[in-house]
């Protein structure tokens, strides 16, 4: 699905990723944990194609294609989805219009027929039900005036409609109360069940989301490198001992 080798990236000359190696196979859930400033969000943004970051070295192959050579929209068309840490408010653009445009761009890029209004509405209802989200959200402007929890739910809803092959969740759990956290986790689990080949990279600062989304692998990012990898028990160990434990062990 995704193979990252020695990925290095910087922003405005400051080196942030210093050689990331990560392989995600179809159907796997990888958690990426790490302290603030370790490069977690940068990794997510670089993979999604944010132009503020300069990739200075390494490779990333997504479903056999050179990911780093693709425009942000082409990455989405290929099946990559980023749930933003800070979803952007776009006043004056209705969620429904936005999502339909996104879906149809992707369909067009894949040589598929564009979805019509009736089919789209049916899909929206179905997916809203699947991820347990109020479908009325579709009539509002994209994230405008949404609470933090609503924005994160909207990300999950968009993910459900766009049906990605690989979804990257960038701190989707931050700032959520336990109810919203469960909605997010439930959405991810439902989408995993819908397509067992679907892969996820869950970027998080805390272990608590991983009580609900059980990862196959846990990686710890520190100083722009993956310093430790393990199974789901690594997350618990981290929660218990804190990030300073990692920094002491690896001497970073």
């Amino acid at each position: 699905m995704l193979e990252i080798k020695n990925l290095q990236a910087s922003v405005e000359g400051a080196e942030i990723l210093r050689g990331i190696d990560l392989t995600v196979n179809p159907g796997e859930i990888h958690a990426i944990m790490g302290p603030n400033g370790s490069g977690k969000s940068t990794l997510a943004q670089v993979l999604a194609g944010h132009e503020a970051y300069d990739v200075t070295g390494g490779t990333a192959t997504f479903r056999g294609e050179d990911l780093l050579d693709m425009e942000a929209e082409a990455r989405a068309h290929a099946g990559l989805f980023l749930a933003f840490q800070y979803p952007v408010e776009i006043a004056g653009v209705a969620n429904s219009y936005f999502l339909k445009a996104a879906l149809n761009s992707t369909r067009k890029a894949r040589g598929e027929k564009e979805i019509d209004a009736v089919e789209f509405l049916k899909l929206v209802k179905e997916k809203a039900k699947l991820v347990n989200i109020d479908e009325k959200m579709i009539n509002r402007s994209v994230n405008a005036g949404f609470s933090g929890g609503e924005k994160k739910r909207n990300e999950i809803f968009q993910m459900a409609v766009l049906e990605p092959k690989l979804a990257i969740l960038d701190e989707t759990d931050s700032g959520l109360d336990i109810d919203a956290l469960q909605v997010v986790a439930n959405g991810v689990n439902k989408l995993k069940a819908e397509d067992p080949e679907r892969s996820f990279i869950v970027v998080t600062h805390y272990q608590r989301l991983l009580n609900y989304i059980v990862p196959d692998y846990v990686h710890v990012l520190s100083g722009g490198r993956i310093v430790k990898s393990g199974g789901k028990e690594l997350a618990l160990e981290l929660e218990d001992k804190g990030y300073s434990w990692i920094e002491e062990t690896v001497g970073a």
Binding site: A48, H50, A76, V88, G92, A109
Partner: peptide, 22 residues
């Protein structure tokens, strides 16, 4: 906003149209 739209698959041109229309 433009990057958010592109990350959802909307190309740059269409994103600009949508933002300008808004």
């Amino acid at each position: 906003s433009r990057f958010y739209m592109r990350a959802r698959g909307i190309d740059r041109q269409e994103a600009d149209v949508m933002l300008t229309m808004a």
